[in-house]
């Protein structure tokens, strides 16, 4: 600015706002025309929006929820239903077939089998993988689903029952069994002997005859005379190398006898429903261990 000419009114033909503070005035540039039009446009748009979509709360009776409904009567729930109906109708044909086919027959129908496995796989990832691993490999305390070592049975029927009602869950049809803490009844010596005997069983060594008598007396009713397990009680097989809570060493077996650990599996029937569970059964069966 030229110091000799500091009166802004003489520089421009814009004019000032009219305010004056001790000789200081302010130029009155208008807002850009495009900006003004967009601003006015948004106001008009809003009025149209109120007319079409739900917008204003209304002071009326308690019977009305929310507020004005708009001429389209749009709700997010209707939108959800629409977007769901699209995918549901695509699934419908196969789903209906699945509902009307026994799980056993599904295994012989390639197209339906694939439908079940794909659906089961996605449900498995969301609901089962956290405990049983994303490939069904299991984790400490949670059984591997890829092998043929089943606690409660690996047939389609047994799998279905386990998934529907869970194990030691709060569902009334749940599978249930409890191994009692036996240390007090057996005595310290006896616990050590049995632990050694059971550890030997899984390694297939017959040299550990010591403890056999105690085992027969205290353990065989559920775990079987030769440690073969019993699926009625979900009693694990002890004669193989597969262990739920450790590596099958003596200390670990001893601690299980003293204070038994029990797995819990939730009942899924209320959360997932019959259809998804049927798909899950087929999927888990397909992992390789199905009987």
């Amino acid at each position: 600015m030229n110091p000799s000419n500091n009166n802004i009114e003489t520089q421009d033909d814009i004019g000032t706002t009219g305010h004056e503070w001790d000789g200081i005035t302010e130029l009155n540039y208008p807002c850009p025309r495009w900006w003004v039009w967009i601003f006015l446009g948004t106001i008009v748009w809003a009025v149209g929006y109120w007319y079409i979509y739900p917008a204003w709360p209304v002071i009326s009776g308690d019977s009305e929820r929310g507020g004005t409904k708009g001429v389209m009567e749009w709700t997010q729930y209707k939108q959800l239903e629409e977007s769901q109906s699209e995918i549901f109708s695509r699934r419908a044909e196969n789903l209906e077939k699945l509902q009307n086919t026994s799980t056993k027959d599904v295994m012989d129908m390639p197209e339906l089998y694939e439908f079940a496995v794909v659906g089961g796989k996605s449900a498995f990832k969301e609901n089962c993988a956290q405990c049983h691993g994303s490939g069904g490999g299991g984790a400490k305390g949670y059984p591997n689903l890829n092998d043929d070592d089943w606690l409660w049975g690996g047939s389609l029927k047994e799998l279905s029952k386990t998934i529907k009602y869970g194990i030691r869950s709060d569902h009334k049809n749940t599978r249930n069994s409890v191994m009692p803490p036996l240390a007090a009844v057996m005595g310290k010596d006896s616990v050590t002997k049995v632990s050694r005997y059971v550890a030997g069983l899984s390694k297939g060594s017959s040299s550990t005859a010591e403890g056999a008598k105690e085992y027969k007396q205290m353990c065989s009713a559920c775990h079987g005379v030769n440690g073969e397990g019993n699926r009625i009680f979900g009693a694990p097989k002890l004669s193989d190398g597969i262990w739920l809570y450790g590596k099958g060493d003596e200390q670990q077996i001893e601690s299980q006898i003293k204070s038994p650990q029990h797995g819990v599996m939730p009942a899924w029937i209320d959360r997932l429903g019959e259809d998804t569970i049927k798909q899950l059964v087929v999927y888990v069966y397909s992992l390789g261990g199905g009987e």
Binding site: N127, Q130, K140, G141, D170, Q261, G263, V264, P266, R271
Partner: peptide, 10 residues
């Protein structure tokens, strides 16, 4: 209800 208590603990 999705996971067992012992799962949550661990």
């Amino acid at each position: 209800g999705k996971y067992s208590d012992s799962w949550h603990v661990q």
